[in-house]
Design a protein around this nucleic acid. Structure first.
Lengths: 202, 202
DNA sequence: ATATTATGTTAACAATGTTTACATAGCAAC
DNA sequence: GTTGCTATGTAAACATTGTTAACATAATAT
């Protein structure tokens, strides 16, 4: 027996903090996250988090980085190298938007004002860049294969990301018409079609 | 002479609070705004704001509404009924993005997580809708004149807004490549061209 | 075994949002 | 004009938060 009732050292506090923070994010917005509340939930003193995160902001940044990694994963999963670039972009975009709608508060944290682009969080920056790279590589493939217009691939990727992020963001704010309490796949498809039309060679 | 040194009643506290709040927004992010600091700056007790705003959130909502009104103004100003819808949309979009870049923290407040779409602020909602209407009316004109594809005008307007908002948001987060310390007009034009290409009848 | 480092705790501080009770001004009715 | 009513302001207090400083304990290396 000898169940480990209480040990002075938690053992995996950093991870535990991030996980409960993700839980809290599902309930309230990112601005409502409190270090002390996290510590309470994990069952540790209120200053313990400071052994693992310099700041509250640092914890939020780690959270956002995890968000980008998951977004990454979600949008990269659906693409297969066999399909056309256009189809890959469409599927990837839909997966992206669905991720945002499924994790609204996490997404708001990732792009919200709690994390200023001025402060320096390499982990966050890299995860964000990788999310962008998913789009870039599909766009490059489309340009190389002649499917897409022959414009600067970074510009095209940026525009594509802007479109997908814009739809996600407006939908989260209920400023993009969608079916009450859900999302209409056809609306999504048609919106994505509009940007794709600007990309395709005619 | 009898200069009015101190009067128990401020006279125009609500407006004064909003104005200094806009000042504070230029310096720090929306999450850094403090009711007490505003009261201090205006020279009034820390609880006086509660006579004019139920909440801190209510003040932020009023601020965001003012932001939408200004955005509105900025993006509607540049459109003239004589020009083509395509040109109007391009100019209006550029004005929109410039507004976002000129008022980064205000824009972040307008779309940030401090204001949940769940809570009810009629003033904010109306101002936001009017911003949308600017786009809708241009899109309608383009569809009616045969310039734009004959799709549902709300869908097209939504997509257009998504594009413009996406560009703005990514640029504010420095996730959209642009000239260091400024914005490249040509990048902006080309990005907007891409969405426009999807709209134009071919 | 001992020293060092990593990790956790307690106590304290200043700042904030908010509520309650009280004070004063402006104004309308009599 | 006095009397009340309402709008607007103040003061005091509370709970909560982020953060720091000083101390305690565990894990680890020497």
């Amino acid at each position: 027996m000898g169940v480990q009732v209480q040990s002075y050292h938690h053992g995996n506090l950093k991870q535990a903090l991030l996980e409960t923070a993700l839980e809290h994010l599902k309930l309230h917005g990112p601005d409502k996250i409190s270090l002390r509340a996290l510590a309470r939930d994990v069952g540790v003193s209120q200053t313990a988090p400071y052994r693992h995160f310099e700041d509250k902001t640092a914890l939020l940044a780690a959270l956002a980085a995890e968000g980008f990694r998951r977004l990454n994963h979600a949008s990269a999963l659906v693409t297969s190298p066999e399909s056309s670039a256009a189809r890959a972009l469409q599927l990837s975009g839909k997966a992206y938007i669905h991720f945002a709608l499924d994790n609204p508060e996490l997404y708001r944290l990732m792009f919200g004002p709690m994390l200023s682009p001025d402060d320096d969080f390499p982990e966050l920056e890299e995860a964000g860049n990788q999310a962008f790279d998913v789009i870039v590589s599909i766009v490059r493939r489309g340009i190389d294969s002649g499917e897409f217009v022959n414009k600067d691939s970074l510009l095209v990727a940026n525009s594509t990301w802007a479109m997908v992020h814009g739809i996600s963001s407006l939908m989260l704010d209920r400023r993009f018409d969608c079916v009450e309490g859900g999302i209409s796949e056809s609306v999504l498809d048609e919106s994505l079609d509009i940007i794709m039309l600007g990309l395709l060679v005619r």
